[in-house]
Design a protein around this nucleic acid. Structure first.
Lengths: 112, 112
DNA sequence: ACAGGACATCGACGGACGTCGATGTGTGAA
DNA sequence: TTCACACATCGACGTCCGTCGATGTCCTGT
């Protein structure tokens, strides 16, 4: 780490994101930072009923059912998807609060 | 992959995100899906002049200068940060288009 | 009770990621 | 020219991630 001998530029004024806040938001972004999971969320969100069962999601990808189940588990654990077992089938729905949280984060981050 | 023998639910109507679009947006989110990089962007964005030099950013973390330089390179390669070498020091600035792209992505993804 | 289907879990594999110490590169001052 | 400094790059290490095949669990007909 460099010593604070001389000031070369502005001292980063204003209230930036705290370390705790960053550690809290990063997992949410990490869950979305995957092409497959991004398409999964998009597919579910663009569905007419706002939800989708795993059987349809499986057919939309050239991936194993185990892999899709894994991705859905990641999205569910991150609080992005709601899980609802109805009989034999399992329906996933997008939790709007999670996505709007990300949207507001980046819309308020840049004041321009 | 399951055979489309019987329709169990809605066929995922509406225009969802394409595979190419997902492959294009995912790296941008992956670059932001890290607590350190999130704080870096936040620090630069909340700076009074809208930019920050690496020397100040180094002091804000308990990490090696090599690690900070690596994170800045990732953010720069993803098109999130602009790099401007001015004499001995290097200044990084947030590219607003990248952040607003993410914001609009998630604000339009959920129609509610 | 039994069989079959829908989905989750497990264990394993290859590759990518975050971090570090060491070294390289370019700039300004003495 | 020589030195010190700011920053980038390199090589290496441990860990996490995406994907798979195999297996387990739960539900529903028959």
């Amino acid at each position: 780490m460099s010593e604070p001998g001389l000031a070369c530029c502005t001292p980063l004024s204003g209230t930036a994101m705290s370390a705790e806040q960053a550690e809290q938001v990063a997992p949410l972004l990490k869950a979305l930072a995957d092409p497959v999971r991004l398409r999964l969320v998009s597919l579910i969100a663009s569905s007419a009923s706002g939800e989708a069962c795993v059987c349809d999601l499986n057919d939309a990808f050239d991936l194993t059912q185990a892999t899709i189940s894994h991705h859905l588990k990641v999205l569910h654990s991150a609080g992005i998807l709601d899980r609802d077992k109805r009989g034999v089938w399992v329906y996933y729905a997008v939790r709007p609060a999670a996505l709007t949280a990300v949207a507001t984060l980046f819309s308020t981050a840049v004041p321009a």
